[in-house]
Design a binder for these strands. Sequence first.
RNA 1: CGGGGUGUAGCGCAGCUUGGUAGCGCGUUUGGUUCGGGACUAAAAGGUCGCAGGUUCAAAUCCUGUCACCCCGACCA
Length: 565
Amino acid sequence: MRMSQMLFSTQREAPSEAEAESHVLLLKAGMIRRLAAGVYALMPLGFRVFKRIENIIREEMDAAGAQELIMSALLPAEYYQESGRWDVFGTEMIKFKDRNGRDFCLGPTHEEIFAYVLRQELQSYKAMPKTIYQIQSKYRDERRPRFGMIRSREFVMKDAYSFDVDEQGLDASYQKMYDAYCRIFDRCGLQYVVVHADTGAMGGSGSQEFMVKSDIGDDTIVSCAGCGYAANSELAACPDAAASTETMQQMEKVHTPNAGTIEELVGFFGLGAQKFAKTLLYIADGKIIAAMVRGDREINETKLKNYLKCASLDLAGAADVRQATSAEVGFAGPLGIKADRVIVDKEIPAMRNFLIGANETDYHYKGVNYGRDFCSDDVCDIRLIEKGDPCPVCGAEIEIVSAIEVGHIFKLGTKYSEAMGCKFLDRNAKESPCIMGSYGIGLNRTMQAVIEQSCDKDGIIWPDSVAPYNVIVIPVGAANEEQMALAEEVYQKLLDAGIETMIDDRDERAGVKFKDADLIGIPHRITVGRRAAEGIVEYKPRRAGKAVELNADEAVVKIIETINV
RNA sequence: CGGGGUGUAGCGCAGCUUGGUAGCGCGUUUGGUUCGGGACUAAAAGGUCGCAGGUUCAAAUCCUGUCACCCCGACCA
């Protein structure tokens, strides 16, 4: 590609719209343009990267025996109504009516659609196993799109769905996808961790996420260097707490004026937050639920939701809190609370002589002990794991970091095949729902995750596998005929060798060309300059490494060797 | 959805307090000098000051409303 011909421009100053480094670089390098919050155009250079990632995914999916098709992004409501997700998705789903008043949406994910279409194809056990995939746009009206393509409202997803006759079949299909995902992300040059993930209300027997560690990630993952345990923090089990040996004191009501929050109570009593138990109120499928954890802990709403097996779980509003506690917000406690259930974190019974809200404005109880002063049928693990907690498997120290979820594989089971009537006849002519798995990769997000992991102060550093072009040839002086001629020669040889190459034939100063080449992250650079007359060029890898002078042909050979490794 | 912030030329910003000819840098166009890490110089093009009302002789500036975007939080099959 001749840069003089390309639709391409870089910016010297970072657009104010971007905060995250990878997002800034995508904009500065002219690879994406924002059209609306969470909606982006991929410019030619960015689109080339995107297509290379797409091709890697397609190759590995095909190699794993999956078959590609494409569904529509425009979908009528009834499929989602059949599974119940028309309502579950709520306003995150982009819904509208057609001219006849029929409800439609832009597909946020396609489980129902695949189950519906495949039910016609999979009437016999002989037709399975099958794994089908598409690479297609998804639409989710996120409340808060973030960091460019990390969380956008339109994005391209490779979503695959497997259909098996039994659990063993699902396990095999799942494993194939797992292996394919490893190859895909390896080939994209990403460093990633595979973590256990929540299967939640979706049911299903297992789920793993492919995570790229990054500060801008929306997820938090827990990992253990000792035993290799790795899980999404929303899933990570918390250890049993050692029972306190303190002797029990008398329970006593204490006047605590204007001390409602844990912070205020810590100041009021001069005790650490771990001496308190806080009670939070939730609305779970319309019922009021009280949830208790130690004062310095956070509730893990995923665990709570799973324990309650509820579809919706929201923190109660102030009005509901006042209603349930007969007090202002901040004084909730288990004693006499008007809640349908009180869920107690398993750490609470191990505590002694702690403090709780009295369900009366400006009052708390101290010297409280579980078992003597209150009890619950629901004692379980509902807190969020935190730094300092031991590994749930081996007890060693854990690491907790933010991460970007680039892929997710999921043993769905029969939820959607049952909802959509995707059933087959087995050997005994008995009808059963297909056992499904679903497997997703966010392409745009993967692309940006690569930048998060591979950039420096000068710009992006694309791995060879996904670079928009692998080589850039820079003639230093556009007016220098010798340099231009040698640059053209090298350019042509690289093209002939099948190497994706660009030549910066623009009438620009050398500095501009170097800066742009670094910014857009082309992995290999050949500079044709001072010694062009002798047939000598300079080779420099974008990532670290010094420039070396080589005979032009040697440089071509070196690049071909490097890229094909 | 709660909190905070920002909308002025393609990009980055100043001007707004105290109303009176819309500015600067980058980029773009043309000429000249330069030419190995974002050159210098001269000239030029480019703006419904987010939008809608209102106050006023006069609004980028004051008032009201509204929309968009960004950040933090909540949420996220």
